[in-house]
């Protein structure tokens, strides 16, 4: 149990996907203008990450290793992630229209989100167990959502700030990302 908590905190804060590992940067800048859509994106990515980590671990353990074709892992994982995103999109569309409209274009975009492929590859490299993989994915998703929410909160405030013209929009967002990164580097010595 202790180990799982360590994995969760490690993935969420210390090795945060966006700030420390630089994964999933496209939604970090693309979907962080409003806190509502940022939270939706974070939740969607967390769900997809968790399910794909689970599926990737199963495929790794029951197909890749027994048949000795471990070198195919990237192709397999991409296939699994794309399928999962399609299934989840289809499922949400049929069962909960409100949620579907809230996600909008972001749901299909998760297919190409490197954070999702990242969690499956990191789980593989770290050699996590099944429960470890799922908790790691949950932690990574929580960290991703946290950063996205923080960033969108700051950027919403920035809309009203008197920013110099040349810095407006993306340039100042990059600067803020740097400062966020500095702050999160403080977690580095925690574990």
């Amino acid at each position: 149990m202790n180990e799982l908590i360590v994995i969760f905190i490690g993935m969420a804060l210390i090795n945060n996907f966006i700030i420390v590992r630089f994964l999933g940067l496209c939604p970090f800048f693309g979907v962080s203008k409003h806190i509502g859509s940022a939270l939706s994106m974070g939740v969607a990515v967390t769900i997809v990450m968790t399910i794909s980590a689970l599926a990737a671990w199963l495929i790794e353990a029951y197909i890749l290793i027994p048949f000795d074709i471990e070198y195919m892992y990237i192709v397999m994982f991409i296939l699994v992630i794309a399928t999962l995103v399609q299934i989840i999109e289809l499922f949400i569309k049929k069962t909960n229209a409100q949620l579907y409209f809230a996600f909008g274009i972001y749901l299909p975009l998760i297919t190409t989100n490197c954070a999702v492929l990242g969690i499956t590859l990191i789980n593989r490299v770290e050699g996590f167990s099944l429960s470890g993989s799922v908790v790691a994915a949950l932690g990574a998703g929580a960290g991703f959502t946290l950063i996205l929410a923080m960033m969108s909160g700051i950027r919403e405030k920035l809309e009203t700030a008197n920013t110099p013209k040349s810095m407006r929009g993306l340039p100042v967002a990059f600067l803020i990302a740097t400062l966020l990164g500095l702050a999160f580097s403080g977690f580095g010595g925690m574990l």
Binding site: L64, F67, M72, T83, I87, F91, K94, T95, A97, Y100
Partner: peptide, 29 residues
């Protein structure tokens, strides 16, 4: 042969699952 077969197999299963979800999950909305 095994890697090709495994990839095609998983792809086929994935396609089948998507098809089943498309057909079987009732349209509530």
């Amino acid at each position: 042969m095994i890697p090709i077969g495994a990839l095609i197999g998983i792809g086929f299963v994935a396609g089948l699952i998507i098809y089943l979800v498309y057909i079987k999950v009732p349209q509530k909305v």
